[in-house]
Amino acid sequence: MLTNKNSLKRRLQIVELVRKRGEVSVEELSQAFDVSSVTIRSDLTYLEQQRYLLRSFGKARYLAQKSGEDILVPASDGAARKSSETLIARIAAESVGDHEAVMLGAGEIIHKIVPFLADRANLSLLVQDIAIAHTAQRFLHCELLLTGGQLENGGTAMSGPDAEASVARRQIDVCLLQASGLDRDGNLLAADPALARVAHAAARAATRTIVLAYQPLLDERSGKVFASAADVDMLLIDDGIDPPTIDTMARHGLTLERREGGVVEFRRD
């Protein structure tokens, strides 16, 4: 069940859910938010009047916003996202123990994990992103290694055959990776194909794989597959995930646990 503290929050979540999926039925929304279909229809009427979506035959379709138009997102939305990402990072860090060899992939949530590892003893850290390596030097006293590889498009994350080979030949106890999307088959996606290949090599090499995501696009065209939910040990995500995706995780053997702050944890028993 999705969080439903008030009608504004529910309507924000409806817009985001419809945006991700493109089209959602009234029945699906009613089940997702645990409210009556009458309440959902009232929400959809309001959102259609405000031109955030279109209604058609018992379904809601996303209406893309034009540049400069007001959107149904409060001013604090950016701060709320940062807070949620930090919470996801903290929960992920709880799975890292002393004396472990850890691989950190690329992404803002991955970057936020570093300070939460400050009290771990004798970590060996393999880092793909130069910016994350700089942060690790500030907060951690541990063995710090870079994957190597090449930088593309002015970014700080390394990729390419050298990075993939570096990751593949190392012993990794746990790798932490960030997904930008996932599809209906439970595949985890990275927006950049080059980064996806490094993430794939890390997931194959690691004893445990943890994937983090904030509002991932639920679209098989939104990126390159780097792992399946069947291959990971944990998926941490915000509570905007929809019921069909929850069912997909369950089919891949992951058990749902709701954590504080609206974070959803799928863990392999």
Rank of each mutant, 00 (worst) to 15 (best):
A89N: 01
Y62P: 03
A201G: 07
L54E: 08
H252S: 08
Y214L: 06
G262S: 13
R21L: 10
N153Y: 08
L2W: 05
R208K: 13
A89M: 01
R267S: 13
R267V: 13
F266L: 07
S56D: 00
T207R: 07
K66F: 15
V96H: 05
S42D: 10
L218P: 14
L195G: 15
I91T: 07
N6D: 12
A101F: 08
K5H: 12
N6K: 02
L104H: 10
Q137Y: 06
A196T: 07
E164H: 02
A32V: 03
T209I: 00
V263Y: 06
Q65F: 08
S228C: 12
D239C: 04
D77G: 09
S37R: 03
M103N: 09
H134F: 15
C175K: 03
A64F: 05
F266W: 01
S76P: 01
C142A: 15
H134V: 15
T3I: 08
V96Q: 02
F139S: 15
M249E: 10
D247Y: 05
A133R: 01
I132A: 07
I237E: 01
A131P: 11
Y46S: 00
A196C: 11
L12E: 10
G107F: 06
R268G: 07
E257Y: 14
L8D: 00
D183T: 02
A60S: 05
A165D: 09
G186H: 13
K82L: 11
Q150P: 10
T255Q: 00
L176W: 14
G149S: 11
S7P: 10
G262P: 05
D173W: 03
L54Q: 02
M1A: 12
F116H: 14
